[in-house]
């Protein structure tokens, strides 16, 4: 049976997270992509060009404009009969809808898979990544969210899938989109960035966070990240939080400045290729995962680093 991938997008662009899911899906069967949105034909086009995609299903309607789970879940369920696996990215959007789909189908949902062992067996981290569980599903349909950092991104070109249109489900009366505040910046997306500069409580204020870390991120073309403590204190926006309950990242280079390295933070970044820790406490647990540890006051070390790059 084919595999259905639920595309993540903003009605204009296909989000990179979808590409990693396509790679995971291609290990399971022929890959179909559902683009459910409003005036999202451009996204369906982009999806049809992704290498390895055999078919794009495009559902378009006002009910699907904002990806609300109350509309998206029945849309997926309507198609589910033809599929053995339904895969979502483990993004805020995917995590919001996948369990709703699974419950409507009366099947388990498998969260955040990091490996496909076989058609019914998958690996997933538990306990903040302190263990990897291998789980086997007995359900007819496997509803899964995929951890992007565990699978390479499929190429955005090379495919030439047919786009098939299907009717959009009706609007849900119970839930209404009011608005959103999406920060616009030119930085790479945190989960797709090659380099991440991340700051912790030690930065002390939002102003300091920007003043000290932005020049380094600019120099390196990096995304900015933060610990929970920095986000809670308002030094950095919520969607910069890296960790067990924030974003999972695995860049080529992760620079942690003034972050102690709590297990919940490590859960989100310990699969990075190279980790640099700048911390003035020689005992800070972050040093246990760092390839290069610099025991220093970050307020001196980071500007010096900027100068020497």
């Amino acid at each position: 049976m084919a595999v259905l991938v639920i595309a993540e997008h903003d009605n204009n662009t296909l989000k990179a997270a979808t590409l990693n899911v396509v790679t995971a899906a291609s290990k399971l069967g022929e890959v179909h992509v559902l683009v459910a949105g409003h005036n999202a034909a451009a996204v369906a086009q982009q999806a049809s060009q992704v290498a390895g995609v055999a078919k794009v299903i495009h559902a378009d309607g006002a009910s699907l404009a904002h990806g609300l789970a109350e509309a998206l879940a029945p849309q997926v369920v309507a198609l589910a009969g033809a599929y053995g696996h339904i895969l979502f990215p483990a993004t805020a959007g995917g995590k919001n809808t996948a369990p709703r789909v699974a419950a409507l189908l009366d099947v388990a949902q498998i969260s955040d898979i990091t490996a496909v062992v076989s058609a019914d067996t998958f690996e997933r981290p538990i306990y903040a990544g302190n263990a990897i569980a291998t789980v086997q599903s007995a359900d007819a349909v496997k509803v899964i969210t995929v951890r992007g950092t565990a699978f390479d991104a499929a190429a955005t070109t090379g495919g030439s899938a047919a786009v098939e249109s299907v009717a959009a489900v009706a609007e849900s009366a119970s839930s209404r989109y009011v608005g959103s505040e999406i920060a616009k910046n030119d930085r790479p997306e945190l989960t797709a960035a090659k380099i991440i500069v991340s700051g912790g409580r030690a930065l002390g204020s939002s102003d300091k966070f920007n003043e000290v870390l932005t020049p380094l991120a600019d120099k390196l073309g990096a995304a900015l990240g933060a610990s929970r403590a920095a986000v809670d204190a308002g030094y950095a926006p919520n969607d910069w939080q890296v960790g067990q309950t924030g974003k999972i990242v695995a860049p080529q280079l992760y620079i942690a400045a003034g972050i102690s390295g709590a297990i919940q933070h490590l859960a989100g970044m310990k699969d990075s290729k190279v980790i640099v820790a700048i911390n003035k406490d020689p005992e800070a647990p972050i040093f246990s995962v760092a390839d290069y540890g610099l025991e220093a006051d970050l307020f001196a070390a980071v500007p010096e680093l900027v100068k020497s790059l």
Binding site: A173, R176, Y177, S180, A183, P237, D239
Partner: peptide, 14 residues
């Protein structure tokens, strides 16, 4: 108000 990728979103639910 919900914490989503990229920022915040507000929904009104019955």
């Amino acid at each position: 108000t919900r914490e989503i990728d990229g920022g915040l979103e507000t929904l009104s639910l019955s």
